[in-house]
Design a protein around this nucleic acid. Structure first.
Ligand code: MN
Ligand code: MN
Ligand code: ZN
Ligand code: ZN
Lengths: 154, 154
DNA sequence: GATGATAATGAAAATCTTTTTCAATTATAG
DNA sequence: CTATAATTGAAAAAGATTTTCATTATCATC
């Protein structure tokens, strides 16, 4: 086997931080680890609570600052949901959109949407030049459907 | 001419309020009038500032409460934008989406999107049952494009 | 058009979230 | 190691929204 193993995503993010002149600190590591190991968008306070288990003297301010930095680097994104708009998730890679479970919050990425016809029609009818689009799907994930129909525990 | 004229939208909203047991007060009239006569989504504070010109003793709390009520009745909706998520606009009528000018905020409604193929594909790939979707387009309106390319005032 | 019951209002206080300040700590280059 | 600069966390400040509560406006009934 080759001696070079693929660096973990966490390491890749830390490398990107370093490359941009940021130092790889304990606080940043913990926040990054949590974001990368959670399949749903998290509020700063949730991240803080989880992170403190590994890093008890962490301050909430640092969570805010780290999210701001990661967002500026394009590694995380803010997600908008009916229940709140300051929740953070791993950023899209390329042109993707989210499908979010309204029961548990699980977020999955999908791609391959082609909205060009739609956007052209909207542009023609409105006189706008359309630059961008937000698309988000909501549904129920397989796990939540299974839990819903499962027999209640005795 | 017929004696019965079509009631204004403002009157229709006030009627809906009355029907739901709410009183048509001066404060509510002013907020409604502003929402109906503005072509972009507004923050509570903006509505408050505009409304005070007509109703100087209005309180900001009342704007919040009125928006809450109008939202509960399905007359206004919260709009999400990169710049803020607590801005309010007339609600959709039927299945519509928004196209928003990123320069001036102007919002126009459009309909006729067919995302069923897209949603089915996302559902199949993810194992989710898809219930709902958010779609929003961003662009530049004709007025803002004209203003941009117009010669500067002497 | 009074009157009493009830809804609605606005000022102030309370809450919650996010940002700023600043002294102490930590990472890095030399 | 040491000097330098970045980072951190606590506390304070700022902002946004909600709650509380005494006062005022609306409405149904007379
Ligand atoms: Mn897309
Ligand atoms: Mn649609
Ligand atoms: Zn789920
Ligand atoms: Zn515009």
């Amino acid at each position: 086997m080759s001696a070079s193993t693929t660096p973990t995503l966490e390491q890749q993010w830390l490398d990107q931080l370093a490359q941009a002149g940021y130092r790889p600190t304990a606080a940043r590591r913990v926040v990054i680890e949590i974001v990368l190991n959670t399949c749903r968008a998290l509020e700063p306070l949730e991240i803080f609570t989880l992170a403190r288990r590994q890093h008890p003297k962490l301050g909430l301010v640092t969570v805010y600052r780290t999210l701001e930095t990661l967002e500026a680097l394009g590694l995380v994104q803010r997600v908008h949901q009916p229940g709140g708009c300051n929740i953070y998730l791993r950023a899209f890679e390329g042109h993707q959109h989210l499908l979010i479970c309204t029961a548990c919050g699980r977020a999955v990425f999908f791609e391959g949407d082609d909205l060009s016809a739609l956007m052209e029609r909207a542009a023609r009818q409105s006189g706008f030049v359309v630059h961008d689009h937000w698309l988000q799907l909501f549904g129920t994930c397989a796990e939540c459907r299974a839990a819903q129909s499962a027999p209640l525990p005795a």
